[in-house]
């Protein structure tokens, strides 16, 4: 069961870009990403959309595999700026690292 934190998108605002909700889950970012497999970065962006705060911290390892090549941002058809969202998530994860009981 994936739990929802309804106002998570609000919470994330202070860490940077909050364009995640514009994403319509096409998966272009996953297809173009040269480094990380397993639905990166869409999975984490999707977790932002539904407010699955715990899932983000559980899967935060993936974030540090990203080299910020920018291909996902270049190809995103919704201009949802996945690269910037990943940066926001890195900041969020660092800030919440020790608070997390999962990691």
């Amino acid at each position: 069961m994936t739990k929802i934190t309804p106002d998570f998108a609000e919470e994330l605002k202070k860490y940077g870009d909050d364009t995640a909700l514009i994403c319509f889950n096409c998966g272009t970012c996953v297809a173009i990403c040269p480094l990380v497999s397993e639905s990166f970065p869409r999975r984490l962006i999707r977790y932002i959309q539904i407010g699955a705060r715990d899932r983000i911290l559980e899967n935060a390892d993936d974030l540090w595999k990203c080299l910020h090549c920018g291909l996902c941002t270049q190809t995103c058809p919704r201009a949802a700026d996945p690269g910037e969202v990943i940066l926001s998530l890195k900041r969020f994860t660092v800030a919440n690292w020790r608070k997390s009981y999962n990691v």
């Binding site: 069961m1 889950n25 999707r46 977790y47 699955a52």
Partner: peptide, 9 residues
């Protein structure tokens, strides 16, 4: 859209 995870809203 969330990889068929069960979600409770």
């Amino acid at each position: 859209l969330t990889f068929s995870e069960e979600i409770e809203v």
